[in-house]
């Protein structure tokens, strides 16, 4: 095992982590500000990927597709908030879960109806294809490196937005006291729509990026949604910093667990048994991480409400 191998796996973990962050950020914002559990967040991820694949197949440019995916996800998010979600803020979480679960079904069947059952294909842009050489003898796919950079840039941007701008101030105020900022003359309804659309746009970007790496198909959002929930629970519900730290943590634990757990068991077991025990354990590693964090800090690493 060389240092190049370990560095490459760490990069893989970070890349997975920043993609998770884009999903988790929207989810945690919506929960933090509006107290809403949105199961349909994965559908916004899927919508971003489908629109990106469709537009880039049509126009022939991944970048235009990416912008289209972002806008489409934001637009659908805003529409969803105005038409449905708005009615759910006063209800309890069970009603929210039911309604947003129904939206998953509607979006999935609607997408199947529009695009069919076959996966769509989205190619990695020419500009970012192939691998690059990094220090320490690491050769790494350029596209994944670009994902890390874009993810980090978006995380910084989001942090600036929340800490330095007026909108961010309103969002933070909304997190701590919803009624008060309404009383201070801020249009809560617009604020909620904007926050929801922002979260949707981030999910759409994540979907577009990942779509080019994997495949664009109905139901692609739900596995990521589950991981995003794990992330926001670990990070502390409502906390953006928490979401970032927890995303990278989950990304690293999952990737490194997949690689090193089987090798660890191979030290004292026969190879085939070690592979199966190792891979079985590695698929549960992030849930074990979540359990440990919750025992130590029951409200997550960066609890927003104490």
């Amino acid at each position: 095992m060389t240092s190049a191998f370990v560095i490459e796996q760490i990069l893989n973990g970070v890349q997975f982590g920043v993609m998770l962050f884009l999903m988790a950020a929207g989810l945690t914002l919506v929960f933090g500000v509006m107290g809403l559990i949105n199961l349909a967040h994965g559908s916004l991820y899927m919508i971003g990927a489908f629109v990106c694949a469709w537009v880039s197949g049509w126009i022939g440019s991944f970048w235009i597709g990416l912008v289209a995916g972002l806008l489409a996800a934001a637009a659908v998010g805003a529409l969803m908030e105005i038409l449905v979600i708005r009615r759910l803020y006063q209800r309890d979480h069970l009603d929210q879960v039911l309604a947003t679960f129904a939206m998953i079904l509607i979006f999935s069947e609607g997408t199947r109806w529009l695009f069919g059952d076959q996966p769509l294909w989205l190619d990695i842009p020419q500009l970012l294809s192939g691998a690059v050489d990094l220090p320490f003898g690491v050769s790494y796919p350029l596209y994944r490196l670009a994902i890390i950079l874009v993810g980090v840039a978006l995380a910084i941007g989001l942090y600036m937005l929340i800490t330095k701008t007026r909108l961010g101030m309103q969002i933070r105020a909304g997190e701590s006291d919803r009624e008060m900022i309404g009383a201070l003359g801020i249009n809560i309804a617009t604020l909620y729509t904007v926050v929801f659309a922002l979260g949707a746009a981030l999910a759409g970007v994540a979907g577009s990026f990942v779509g080019a790496l994997q495949s664009v198909q109905v139901g692609m959002g739900e596995p990521v949604l589950i991981l995003a929930f794990v992330v926001i629970v670990i990070g502390g519900i409502g906390s953006i910093e928490g979401a970032l730290v927890a995303s990278v943590l989950v990304g690293l634990v999952d990737t490194l667990g997949r690689v090193f757990l089987p090798q660890f068991f191979a030290l004292f077991m026969e190879p085939s048994a070690a592979t199966s025990v190792g891979s079985a354990l590695s698929s549960t590693s992030i849930y074990i991480l979540m359990a440990i964090v919750l025992i130590w800090k029951p409200k997550g690493l960066f609890a927003a409400h104490d």
Binding site: A4, E8, P141, L213, M220, R258, T275
Partner: peptide
């Protein structure tokens, strides 16, 4: 052995390389 339904193989590809 990978997870059934897994769609990201970066870790496995790095293992193949190494």
């Amino acid at each position: 052995y990978t997870k059934l339904g897994q769609t990201d193989y970066a870790a496995e590809i790095a293992q193949i390389k190494a």
